[in-house]
């Protein structure tokens, strides 16, 4: 009996000396910091976010103020990125456009989480007929082309009370969010189904844990990693969708600046004033790339398989 009660000294030494004490999130954080692309992505996102938040402090121009005396100006010391066909400052419009894009990215994903997470979790943990029914519905949603559904939804929503909230931006949040949640609900359901097979869940059942307890304590916390990654990849998709909608003229209403609308406006004068297209296009590309890099980094960092 004695030697099982006395922790073996070498055994303790092995744990203490070999690797420093780290929690899983700690571990993920350290790995994320080591990933240069992910860090670069995070920095780009931060710069855009700061620019969007502090836009009024950074530029003295109003994004909506027209100045017909100075249209199609090339970039200069006065107008850093030139002016557009109505003489509005492009730099200011780009900064305020970042507000639109980031808001779309974040709020759609919030809606996605609010709908997708509970439905996926419910289907996965209940199983059986409930699961079957919910997932067939998700499959049907999945079968429709996303962009078509979003256009339809935004057309319908425009007629409702949401139509005029925040210059039409609310409609965009809802339309994208109401379509994109299926991805997350599928992911959450899959995660939960596979976690349910794990022995630690069986152990919790064997000690009398109830269904909701098991879902909240074991199933959801362990699906968190993949959910975070999916959300991170969802942000650029939503930004791109908003840009596309605004480009075809059914996105945010003017004069609210949007990168997609800026490209649309600049398209006709692409050869005489190329900066009107290049600036918003580069902004979209940069923010999408940044989120993709960060998402890749998060996926590698949060994957517990890469460290045992």
């Amino acid at each position: 009996m004695t030697d099982t009660q006395q922790p073996n000294p070498s055994e303790m030494a092995e744990v203490t000396q070999a690797r420093p004490h780290r929690t899983l999130l700690n571990d993920a954080w350290i790995r994320l910091r080591r990933n240069r692309l992910a860090v670069a992505g995070a920095i780009i996102i931060l710069i855009f976010a700061l620019g969007a938040i502090f836009a009024p402090l950074i530029t003295k121009y109003n994004f909506a103020k027209q100045d017909l005396d100075s249209i199609f100006l090339q970039p200069s010391g006065v107008h850093w990125l030139g002016t557009d066909e109505l003489g509005r400052d492009v730099f200011a419009r780009m900064l305020y456009g970042a507000r639109t894009s980031l808001a779309v990215g974040i709020f759609t994903q919030l809606i996605v989480l609010l709908i997708g997470l509970p439905i996926g979790a419910f289907a996965g943990s209940k199983g059986g007929r409930v699961d079957n029914l919910l997932m067939r519905f998700v499959d049907i949603m999945y079968g429709f082309p996303d962009i078509l559904l979003i256009i339809l939804l935004s057309a319908v929503l425009r007629g409702t009370v949401f139509g005029n909230m925040g210059g039409g931006i609310f409609v965009i949040f809802l339309a994208i969010g109401l379509v994109a949640w299926v991805n997350v609900s599928r992911l959450v359901r899959g995660q939960i189904l596979s976690l349910k097979q794990r022995d630690f869940v069986t152990a919790a059942r064997a000690m009398g844990g109830k269904g909701t307890y098991i879902t909240m304590r074991h199933l959801l916390p362990n699906s968190l990693g993949p959910i975070i990654v999916s959300i991170t990849f969802g942000v650029p998709r939503a930004i791109f969708t908003e840009a596309a909608l605004s480009y075809i003229g059914i996105g945010v209403k003017p004069p609210t600046p949007s990168w997609g609308a800026m490209i649309h406006d600049g398209y006709n004068v692409m050869f005489t004033a190329p900066h009107l297209v290049i600036v918003p296009a580069v902004a979209i590309a940069l923010i999408m790339l940044a989120f993709t890099f960060l998402g890749d980094g998060l996926r590698d960092a949060l994957d517990p398989r890469s460290r045992r």
Partner: peptide, 20 residues
């Protein structure tokens, strides 16, 4: 045999079995 096999990232100095 008490103890655990060594962590091969930092194996023991001297005889590898020495800690156990």
């Amino acid at each position: 045999i008490e103890g655990q096999p060594p962590d091969m990232m930092c194996p023991p100095v001297g005889c590898p079995f020495q800690p156990r």
